[in-house]
Design a protein around this nucleic acid. Structure first.
Lengths: 134, 134
DNA sequence: ACTTGCCTTGAAGTGGACTTAAAGGTTTAG
DNA sequence: CTAAACCTTTAAGTCCACTTCAAGGCAAGT
């Protein structure tokens, strides 16, 4: 598959695909007789994988660990699975943080009329455990 | 309150506090006789507010709109409230995206044994709940 | 053959959000 | 009084993740 097709298939710019390959996130892509990239099925899987995890906010740095672990022979599946679990839990924590801000904003919206900014009160609201307290 | 105290109270570096003020996210902070910053209660409210929204991933750009709207006289509360709602909904969407990746990772974890990377299948998994697809 | 447009590379540039440096004034402990 | 430990400013530097540029090779239409 050509770089243009892959770019369209996954909605990732051609430059980004070349960049990911250059820094080693993607493996060296095979070339056709003209030196153009020809992506294999496996390459596409990696593009999908990397895109999903990048979209979820995983850093390039973290993705290196990921990619390395899944490519190297001398790692057990248990270890790989553990990494997946770790990354999921990391994402879960991040989502929890976002949720806190969302309910804080909801509080501000619901109590808009009596709102005068007061960080001491709002700190309490912000850090209140997920109880729909009014 | 001194810059050092504010920095500690909100866990935001002094440099960042000066930076936020310089670019206009924070108002001009009053100075004491030595020219040192002396943060008022209102200033602290803004620090809290900005910190919460930054932590939630809101860009400086978006925060400008926010701050301006809440500072200017000629805007109705309705308009301000609308902005809060918009920002909350934006955050909600982002969280939904993250959730999708979380359940995708959960799927990968649960089906680890029979896993061979295959983006066509996994795309389906990833977009399972989200009928629209791309 | 020419033109248009896609592909290649390495290097340099961009944008966002700080962070650090340099040079100096102020406060406080001994 | 002196030195450490604060504070001030403006300007330059850093980090991340691309993105754009420059110079050229390859391919398809007319």
């Amino acid at each position: 598959m050509t770089i243009d097709a892959v770019s369209k298939e996954f909605d990732v710019s051609k430059d980004t695909l070349r960049y990911w390959e250059r820094i080693g996130l993607l493996p060296k892509i095979k070339r056709n007789s003209s030196g153009y990239r020809d992506y294999s099925e496996m390459d596409m899987n990696w593009v999908f994988y990397i895109k999903v995890l990048r979209n979820a906010g995983m850093s390039i740095e973290a993705l290196f660990e990921f990619v390395e672990l899944f490519r190297s022979e001398d790692n057990t599946n248990d270890y790989r699975k553990q990494l997946l679990i770790e990354q999921r839990d990391l994402l879960l924590k991040e989502v929890e943080e976002r949720q806190k801000t969302i309910s804080y904003l909801s509080y501000k919206i619901d109590h808009f009329e009596d709102h005068t900014l007061n960080y001491e009160n709002e700190k309490l609201v912000y850090h209140a455990k997920d109880e729909k307290g009014d």
